[in-house]
């Protein structure tokens, strides 16, 4: 690999472009590639190109044959947090540290402003607008923290209509039961509603905002990795 190729790789990663570096472990030659392009000093056969593109789609790094190694760079996982509340100020940096691109959504400007953190975007918007902008996908976790039905419910409804891999809602068992009733009335099925982790987080008897954030991040990772395990 040379500096030019490394720079291009870093640009593609910054653009959230799924890509991979394929390296010949004997010669050291490498090629940076994505769905359409392939640049570098390593020429791949049509068959190896096809295999490499399938590996990019599957986010699967590893050896292709005894000589070729592919390192896939998938865009970061995302976490959408609804509610720039106290727990968000612990959850957002923890999730960012775990590798998530985090967006904190809150229509209340003072709340959103107080939540400015490294690696974290904040968005002053109503949750339903934010969700239609952010388009959660299978690599997105959605966590609602406001306790306020007029903020949490629309976000949860959007999350349930998306393929988000994790949906969690803060609130006691009682609050959660009421929430389930409201969403049922909106037409969501038992199976839809079973996707919501509520009360949110692994049960570690968490008390403080930071402890609750640990339990949420732990549960999100558990759900994420359980799929692959």
């Amino acid at each position: 690999m040379n500096l030019q190729l490394l720079r291009t790789l870093q640009q593609w990663r910054a653009q959230k472009r799924p890509c991979a570096m394929v390296t010949n472990l004997t010669s050291g030659a490498s090629v940076l590639m994505d769905e359409n392009a392939a640049i570098g000093d390593l020429a791949l056969s049509a068959e190896h190109l096809r295999t490499a593109r399938a590996r990019i789609a599957a986010d699967q790094s590893g050896t292709i044959d005894s000589e070729l190694f592919i390192r896939v760079y998938a865009p970061p996982l995302r976490m959408i947090i609804v509610g720039a509340v106290h727990i968000a100020s612990a959850l957002a940096p923890m999730a960012a540290m775990a590798g998530f691109d985090v967006t904190v959504v809150d229509p209340r400007e003072t709340f959103a402003r107080s939540g400015q953190m490294a690696g974290v975007s904040s968005m002053v918007a109503w949750p339903d607008e934010a969700m239609s902008d952010l388009k959660p996908d299978a690599r997105t976790a959605v966590v609602t923290l406001t306790h306020d039905p007029k903020l949490d419910d629309p976000a949860l409804a959007s999350a349930l209509r998306s393929s988000a891999f994790y949906v969690g809602a803060l609130g006691s068992r009682k609050t959660h039961a009421k929430r389930i009733e409201r969403l049922k009335a909106e037409g969501f099925s038992e199976a839809d509603l079973a996707r919501i982790h509520g009360p949110v987080g692994l049960d570690i008897n968490a008390l403080t905002p930071a402890e609750i954030a640990v339990s949420i991040v732990a549960q999100v990772i558990d759900v994420l990795r359980a799929e692959a395990a």
Partner: peptide, 29 residues
């Protein structure tokens, strides 16, 4: 309104790029 605070995260490739741009020799494992 979207505000992004994009501090450098834990990324060895970013360090590699920076070192080489500064004229140091560097390798990737």
């Amino acid at each position: 309104m979207t505000t992004t605070f994009d501090e450098r995260r834990d990324d060895p490739l970013a360090d590699l790029e920076r070192w080489i741009a500064q004229g140091q020799k560097a390798a990737l494992a």
